[in-house]
Structure formats: C-alpha cells, structure tokens
C-alpha cells in the first residue's frame, strides 16, 4: 500500500504522518507528479491561509495535477477548502473539484471564530464513515466553511449546519482534522486506507 502525502508546506503534514505511523503506515511525502499519480492513496493536508497556499500550489503546478487524480484522494481542512471553487479568504480562486464556495462564518449568537474544538458530525455518507462514527465528536479549527450541498458527506453545526465532509467520485474531504480527532479520527483514516 503506497500512501502519498502531497508535500507543499502545509502546516499539519507532520501530524498527518504521525497519525498514519500510529496505524502502521509509512507514508511517502512528495511533490513529484509521477510519484503522486502512481500512489494507491493520496492525502492532501492543509493548514494555513488560502491565497498564499493556492499561490504555492500554482507555482508547483499541483493545482492542475490534483483534480486529474484517479485514486482515492483525501483533502483535510484547508485541503478541503482548496478543492472547492472559490474561497472568501482573500478572494481566492481554488481548484474547483467541488463546485461549492467557501465562506466566512458569520456568528449568529456570539459564537467565537475560529470554530475551534470538538464538535459532532451527523448525516454521514461515503466510504470514509461508518455507523459507529455517527454523532461522534471530531476536532475542528477553521474560520471559513463550506455550505451544505449535494456533495456533503457529513454535517456539523456551528453558526449554521455546514459541510463537515465532502465526497465526489474518488475525492473525499474533511473540514475537521481526523489526524487530531482521537480514536474517532483514527477510524476515519483507517476507513480511507481501506477504501
């Protein structure tokens, strides 16, 4: 099993590597197109600011490569947002794998932004989830969110119900951090590995 993490200076890469190590997987960290295309599974991590990160991906041509991948791809946090069409964070055009737009949370009743901490996920769909994960808590840290849509694979509620996960064809994405979500997160990563 060749699991590759796309190397582009995302802040949570090391945490993702450690999470995979705990499941007995030694991932390859690379930005080499051929190595990424040949991998069995690809993880696209992401922590940081949207426009800076997209500029970095464009410079490396990764913004063109990622949407063409055929194997299961898992985008995490900012990774998920960059797989959408557009982000309000510094008005950034993203990769458009999902047609959704990424919007800034607007607190309705004094909620703090970023949405930071452990929140429940419900309405689970797609192969990375299973029944045991319904209504479990996972760790979120984000100020921008993806609205609910046809691609929504999990729902969380903060300011309003939003997409905690997305799924389309071979593309999977979570707004939360499975690598930092305890045993629940480890199960989600395991399910992705077993796809």
């Amino acid at each position: 099993m060749n699991l590759t993490i796309i190397d582009y200076n995302a802040g949570n890469t090391q945490s993702v590597i450690f999470a995979l190590n705990r499941l007995g997987i030694e991932p390859t960290l690379t930005d080499d197109f051929e190595a990424i295309q040949k991998a069995d599974k690809v993880i696209f991590p992401g922590v940081g600011e949207a426009s800076t990160t997209m500029a970095f991906l464009r410079k490396k041509g990764l913004d063109k490569l990622i949407p063409t991948l055929k194997q299961p791809v898992l985008g995490v946090c900012l990774g998920m947002q960059l797989m959408c069409a557009h982000s309000e964070e510094n008005d950034t055009t993203c990769m458009g794998i999902f047609s959704e737009k990424v919007k800034l949370f607007k607190p309705a009743s004094g909620e703090k932004v970023p949405h930071m901490g452990w929140n429940n996920i419900t309405n689970l769909k797609s192969g990375i989830f299973d029944e045991s994960l319904d209504n479990q808590r996972v760790y979120f840290v984000h100020s921008y969110y993806v609205e609910k849509s046809n691609y929504t694979a999990a729902v969380a509620d903060y300011c309003q119900p939003f997409s905690a996960a997305l799924h389309r064809d071979n593309f999977y994405a979570t707004q939360f951090h499975p690598e930092k979500s305890g045993k629940v997160g480890a199960k989600i990563i395991e399910n992705f590995i077993n796809l």
Binding site: G11, V47, G48, E49, T52, P114, M116, V141, H142, S143
Partner: peptide, 9 residues
C-alpha cells in the same frame, strides 16, 4: 505569523 501559518495556528 498568522499570514504565514494561518490564524488557527
């Protein structure tokens, strides 16, 4: 730092 790594960090 927040521009480089994101506010959440």
């Amino acid at each position: 730092l927040s521009l480089q790594f994101g506010n959440q960090c």
